[in-house]
């Protein structure tokens, strides 16, 4: 059974890191639409892929993954927006967990947006 002792061990391990975390300037923000439209279109696994992928990449200190409500382009859900400091926002549409992994690899880690998944590349 997962014990509360185990939780306290994670706490002890992390307390050293907290000071660093607060000082770090978060440079990338990944926002996943999680309203009814997003959830119905499959946003939950997409969000999960970003949370786990960012953590596995060891980038949890500088990349935050957050949720938002309906952005208003429900037909393109799951929608993911990536905000980077001093750069234009990237809007990814019709996302999947697999595409999310690719975005982490190429965009979040590599710095180059995956243009083919962006709203600009979608026929309106």
């Amino acid at each position: 059974m997962k014990s509360f002792e185990e939780l306290m061990a994670i706490k002890a391990k992390m307390q050293d890191k907290v000071a660093v975390r607060q000082a770090a300037d978060n440079t990338i923000r990944v926002v996943v639409g999680m309203a009814t439209c997003g959830i119905a279109a499959g946003a939950r696994p997409v969000l999960n892929a970003f949370v786990e992928g960012v953590n596995e990449a060891g980038m949890a200190e500088t990349v935050t993954v957050t949720q938002t409500g309906c952005i208003g382009i429900c037909q393109y859900e799951p929608v993911v927006e990536v905000f980077e400091k001093d750069k234009e926002k990237t809007t990814y549409v019709k996302m999947t967990a697999e595409k999310a992994q690719e975005v982490i690899e190429k965009h979040i880690k590599g710095g180059k947006p995956v243009t083919e998944y962006t709203i600009g590349a979608t026929k309106l």
């Binding site: 997962k2 185990e6 939780l7 706490k11 307390q15």
Partner: peptide
Amino acid sequence: LKALLGDDIPLSNPEILGWIDGYLKEQYAE
């Protein structure tokens, strides 16, 4: 969980979420 962890560690922290995942899954298995 918050009472145990204090104010500095948010529950959204990936390691804490990982613990929650295991904690719930084990209860379900049982």
